[in-house]
Amino acid sequence: MRAFSYERVSSIEAAARAAATTDGAKFIAGGTNLLDLMKLEIETPTHLVDVNGLGLDSIEATPEGGLRIGALVRNTDLAADERVRRDYALLSRALLAGASGQLRNRATTAGNLLQRTRCPYFYDTNQPCNKRQPGSGCSALAGFSRQLAVVGVSDACIASHPSDMAVAMRALDAVVETVRADGTKRSIPIADLHRLPGDTPHVEHVLERGELITAVVLPKPAGGEQIYRKVRDRASYAFALVSVGAVVHPDGTGRVAVGGIAPKPWRDEAAEKELANGAKAVAAKLLAGARPTEQNAFKLTLVERALSAVLVEAKG
């Protein structure tokens, strides 16, 4: 881990300013992903801006009937919130399927959205990785890729996004609120937050330098049966091979977002129109253009079957 300077900030403006004006600055909140990567010198900030003193840790009702979730609300608290459990069960379920009790106690809402891939080559600094070191090549393409993405990938990168929470947020049409270094605010629909790798897999989202996530807003409850099905090798404390987050209404319509298969939470509104035609039809659309490796081609079948099980469960 490289040496870095450290400051605690107590206002959002100060945080954004500090991050924008100091070379190599990064925000730190829960730190559960950032410190992991700093120890391996995959992340090498020279200055850390500790935003834990900013508040941003409450969950409030919005005038539109939704919830505004502070960026620093810990995963445990978000999952345990009465309103989330009642009206956004999908989100609660997704959070509880992720990591461990200890990690959920630290990890924040914003940090969870921005966590980085678990591709083993990204984690090993001796190995070529276009995401870690642009231009060095992708070791995973011809290497160990069982966990990695099958859709949204490029020749440069097949890393998958590891978040469970983000899958639920995607299905629930969450909107990310930020403050930029110049103090201006903006709202980014979650669908637009993450970028696909293309030729620049090291650029993972649309946030600008110094731009701070302040909240994630959920629209009014979607209703329906809300199910999060995470498929993994181990029964707990493991990243998803595939996960399905679904909202299914009594009339058979609904929404589906899938995790573990793409560089971002994967959702396709056109696929959802096929819900009445069953899992096969939905999966065919969702996975159109998939480019699996020999090692992760099973995910195509797995998505379809997991979705099928979710639809059966939703019917009750």
């Binding site: 678990r118 090798d233 181990r234 029964a235 707990s236 493991a238």
Partner: peptide, 8 residues
């Protein structure tokens, strides 16, 4: 990445 059994 090397998954040994957990409690669950």
């Amino acid at each position: 990445a090397y998954e040994v059994p957990v409690h669950a």
